[in-house]
Amino acid sequence: MRARSLVILDKSVAAMVAAIEIYNKPVFMYREETFAVLAINAWELLLKAKWLKDNKNKLASLYVSDTGGAKQALSKSSPKSPRLRYKTNRAGNPMTHSLDHFVKSLVASKALDIEVERNLLALTEVRDNSIHFYNDNPSLAERLQELGTAAVKNFVIASQEWFSMNYADYNFHLMPLAFFNPVAAADAIVLTKEQRRVVSYIESMETNKESDRHYAVSVNVNLKFVRSTATHAMAVQLSNDPDAMPIQMTEEQITAKYPLDYAQVQNRCRQRYSDFLTNDKFHLLRASVSKDPKYCRVRELDPGNPKTPKKPYFSEAIMTFFDQHYTKK
Rank of each mutant, 00 (worst) to 15 (best):
I8D: 03
L9T: 00
S12A: 11
V17S: 02
I20N: 09
K25A: 11
P26E: 11
R31W: 14
V37D: 07
A42H: 15
L47G: 00
L52G: 03
L52S: 02
K56W: 14
D66Y: 09
D66P: 09
G69S: 00
K71F: 02
K76D: 04
P79N: 10
R85Y: 03
K87G: 05
N89R: 09
A91G: 03
M95E: 02
T96H: 11
S98L: 06
S98P: 01
L99T: 00
D100A: 04
D100F: 02
S105F: 07
A111T: 13
E115N: 04
R118A: 14
R118T: 06
A122H: 14
L123G: 02
D128L: 12
N129S: 00
F133M: 00
P138E: 06
L140S: 06
E142N: 06
L144I: 14
E146D: 11
T149E: 15
I157N: 02
Q160G: 04
W162I: 02
F163W: 12
Y170C: 05
L174V: 08
P176V: 01
P182D: 00
A188W: 05
A188E: 06
I189Q: 13
R196Q: 15
T207V: 12
T207M: 09
A216D: 15
V219D: 06
F225L: 05
V226S: 07
T229H: 03
A233V: 11
A235V: 13
N240D: 10
M245Q: 02
P246G: 10
Q248D: 01
I254N: 05
L260P: 00
Y262I: 05
R268F: 04
C269G: 13
Q271C: 05
T278Y: 15
R286I: 10
C296P: 15
D302I: 06
K311C: 15
P312T: 14
F314T: 08
S315F: 06
S315P: 07
F322M: 03
